[in-house]
Amino acid sequence: MHTNRMRSRARQAALILLTLACGLGPTGCACMHNSHASDDLDALRAENLELRQTLESTRQALEASDSQRSSLESRLADAGSVSAAATASAAPIGANTSFSQIEGVETVAGGGSITVRVPGDILFDSGKADLKKGARSTLTEIAQVIKSDYADSTVRIGGHTDKDPIRRSRWKDNLELSSQRAMAVQRHLRKQGVDAANMYSAGYGSLRPRATKKLSRRVEIEVVLNE
């Protein structure tokens, strides 16, 4: 009898445990399921936030790139305009000044000045710095234009030679010869009434050659335009 009573109590305890397990089982599973769902939702929210931040950064970078491109395009356009203007101003100006009416000279403009190029063969004999008779009339015409149109302007006179070394001359080298030629032109312009205080002369020898030897032998009279 005692054994039967113990077996009955064991069955009751088992039934109680089974009942508790059945009651708690579904609730426990539901809680675990809800916990996993909450974690997944938090992860999705974090990923969504990260994607939004990346999208915003990309948008800002694109806007900055567009702004930089517009700025570069504007600068390129401005540079093109300046280059075109500089090219136009450096071109031979032909009949745009009174200097162009003087026979045998070339007139060019650029950098705020007008330069009259007088061929050396018109002005001097080979290896000499004395003006030819025919050169005086050309320089006199140049002096008249300076006095009438550019009386207050600075006048720079530069002598130039070719690269051939001097063989028969009183001057020791091309640099000295070109300096003497520039001074000879300056003296004649002064005699014709050009203000001596506005004139400067220098010799460059063969340091600034042109395309040919003949073109390299020259005197350049540069009139600096007053602003």
Rank of each mutant, 00 (worst) to 15 (best):
H36F: 11
D66G: 05
S74P: 01
E47C: 02
A88G: 05
L51N: 04
G25C: 06
A84L: 09
N48I: 08
S70M: 09
A77C: 02
A43I: 03
L72M: 13
G23P: 02
L44N: 07
L17I: 08
N96M: 06
A91Y: 00
L72K: 01
S65Y: 10
M32I: 13
D66Y: 10
R11Q: 07
A10S: 10
R45N: 05
S67M: 09
D40F: 00
T27F: 13
G25T: 04
A86T: 12
L49V: 15
S81T: 15
L15D: 08
R11D: 13
A14M: 11
E47M: 05
S83F: 15
S38D: 08
S38K: 06
L55K: 04
N96T: 12
M32N: 09
R69D: 14
T58C: 05
T87K: 12
A37H: 01
T58I: 11
A37L: 04
E63D: 09
S35H: 09
I93M: 03
A21K: 03
S65F: 14
I16P: 04
S35I: 06
L20D: 03
E56C: 01
S100Y: 00
A61R: 02
G28Y: 14
D42F: 05
A95Q: 05
M32G: 04
G28F: 12
C29W: 15
D78T: 04
S100C: 00
L76I: 06
A30F: 13
A10T: 07
A85E: 08
T27H: 14
L17Q: 12
S81G: 15
S83G: 13
L44P: 01
A88D: 08
V82F: 05
E56A: 12
E56T: 10
S35P: 03
A43K: 08
L44Q: 07
T19I: 10
S35F: 12
S98F: 05
H36I: 15
G80Y: 01
Q60S: 06
